[in-house]
Write a protein that binds this DNA or RNA. Structure first.
Lengths: 133, 133
DNA sequence: ATCAATGTTCCAGTTAACTGGAATGTCAAG
DNA sequence: CTTGACATTCCAGTTAACTGGAACATTGAT
């Protein structure tokens, strides 16, 4: 199939498919006589795998690594586990940060609601924001 | 005070202070005869305000807006409330996303732990990641 | 006199994952 | 035969918030 069809089926823009090829994420397909890329279903599978991996929060570089391990005939399970575990830590600590940020923001909003709006004439730019500490 | 001193007191690198001036976030200070920047305490206060605003998750452009409103003699409370409320929404929805991502990752990890590692020889690159859907 | 530290400007690079656009080629339909 | 859709390559731009480095001036201390 040509790139347009693969694009439709995979829901990745053609531009992105070419980009993935450039960075070594997607295998180079064969070419028709006219130079057009000619994909088979394995390309679609790869793109689905890429989508799954992205959904798990992996970076393109990490996905390339997994694919490379496979290409060397190795089983990437162990590496994938490592990546997922690192990612889980990232997500967890980011969750904590955001939770704290949320509480701060709610406190700020509550203050903003409570106070007499016109009493704010300080040199400190904004009484609300300066209460975040 | 010179930029080095302001840098120490504010805990912002001198480079960043100059950058903030470039993008219109920090007022241009007066200059000494030699061309060196000469700051007073208000610069320090502004940097503290900037730090507070960043801590609330505001973008530099948004902080510039707040400062601009102040410079026009207006009270930025209403605008700040708006920004904070938008930010709170962002944080909340990002929290939801991450929470879901965390659950997915935990599910994936549990699967990775449970399964017989050497039974993985598929063409689909990785059985673990392909279970995310 | 010289040396290190600090200051200046200006330009370019970083990160990630694309996206836009120009210039050009190919193909199927009317 | 021309038109429009689709294909190609290649280069550059996007976003955010800096950061690095070159080339140069100034200052304070020895």
């Amino acid at each position: 199939m040509k790139i347009g069809e693969l694009s439709e089926k995979s829901h990745y823009p053609a531009k992105t498919i070419r980009y993935y090829e450039d960075i070594g994420l997607l295998d180079r397909p064969t070419r028709d006589v006219n130079g057009y890329r000619n994909y088979d279903n394995s390309a679609l599978q790869q793109l689905q795998f890429i989508r799954n991996s992205q959904a798990a929060g992996l970076k393109l570089k990490e996905i390339i690594q997994i694919l490379d391990i496979r290409k060397e005939g190795q089983i990437p399970c162990k590496h994938v586990r490592q990546l997922l575990s690192r990612r889980l830590e990232e997500v967890t600590s980011r969750l904590d940060e955001l939770q704290k940020a949320k509480e701060d923001l709610e406190r700020l909003m509550a203050y903003a609601d409570s106070f007499d709006q016109m009493s704010c004439d300080e040199e400190l730019v904004c009484t609300i924001l300066n209460r975040i500490k």
